[in-house]
Amino acid sequence: MDVTERWYRAFAEHTAPTSPLYEALSLLVAGDAELIARLSVLPEPKRQPNLLFGATRYLDGPVESTSDWREWVLSRWDEVVAVILAHRTQTNETNRCAALLPVLSQVDGPIALLEVGASAGLNLYPDRYRYRYGTHELGDGPVLLECEPRGDVPLPKRLPEIVWRAGLDLNPLDIRDEEVLRWLTALVWPEHHERRTRLHAAADIVRADPPRLVQGDMLTDLRALAAQAPAGATLVVQHSAALAYVVDAEARKGFAATVTSLPGHWIALESPGVVPGTEVEADVNTEVVSMDGRIMGFSDSHGRWIGWP
């Protein structure tokens, strides 16, 4: 089986069940020799389903019908490829803050928060959002993040005191740019209306007080940015669905060695095994919440629920 075909079949089976439209499109692509052939000439990172489908939505293409989508994407292939080559899948899913907060709230402040793979920096503002875990609520921000607690989750009693925030990304995005917001909106799956609403509300918060975003590689530039955190604040390096894009396992180990050598803490939400030391059997679409390389809990990839071992 072609590697691109396998990628789309895996996406349909493991990632897209919460989006029946994308599940159907993924299976269509996997079984379509012409589409696979066209995708296969692109650089491998540019073949991924989220990028192809995001480009479709960015160009206002149809996703409700597989036959209409196929006809449209083939007729507009050059435009679709131009969008794919010019963009990355930099989804800023703010609800992931709700999955990270039970760990982050255990860190004594003040906190210097540094996010790698920050995209537009929306997840650098966990102190500005409002949270609901079942019947437990905290915060009074204008954006509500809801997360279902499963099991004996240590529900946060306070929001973090963040006095410095910075992001590191290969391609940092300025959310004040309407085209940036348009692209991030296109990356939200079509049935996920609440995620689109939340994205735009969070963008308003960040636009009013933009974070410092630095262009750089998490593998080589983290230490220099971390050194700029203010004295007297506890450094927290966080990331969610970012380290997974470093496909080389040795490179991930190198990142882990760097981040654990820094003062402070390291908090992550990644697929099992992406953070070295978090290899564990888990259900499909279940991510590991870890702190300093130690498994703390589990969540889905969009922070809809959180469970504790």
Results as ranks from 00 to 15, higher is better:
D283R: 01
V41W: 04
L262N: 06
A226K: 03
A86V: 06
M218T: 15
V180E: 11
F298V: 01
E179Q: 15
L187V: 06
I205F: 14
P172F: 13
I175R: 09
E13W: 11
V80K: 08
L100E: 00
A99S: 12
V259H: 00
G254W: 01
S301W: 14
A99R: 04
E23D: 12
E44Y: 15
A242M: 08
L243G: 12
A186N: 03
Y131I: 01
E161Q: 14
D2N: 15
L113I: 11
L168H: 05
A201R: 15
E93R: 11
Y22N: 12
Q228W: 00
R9A: 10
R70A: 14
Q90M: 09
P211S: 05
Q228G: 00
A86K: 05
A118C: 07
L74T: 07
P263I: 05
A227K: 01
D283Y: 12
R57S: 09
A82V: 07
T197Y: 08
P276V: 13
L51C: 09
W305K: 00
R150S: 07
Q48V: 03
G134E: 01
L113W: 03
Y125I: 10
P160D: 10
A202S: 13
R165K: 09
A226L: 01
P110Q: 06
L235E: 03
V83M: 13
D217K: 13
A112P: 02
R96Q: 09
V289D: 00
H239N: 11
D177V: 03
N171R: 12
D169T: 08
L101W: 12
I36P: 09
M291F: 03
E71N: 10
L159N: 06
G277M: 07
W308H: 07
S271T: 03
V180S: 08
H87N: 15
P17T: 14
A233H: 06
R158Y: 02
K157Y: 00
V237F: 01
T94G: 13
S290H: 07
A268R: 11
E148G: 01
L170N: 15
P45Y: 10
R132S: 10
V214C: 09
G254M: 04
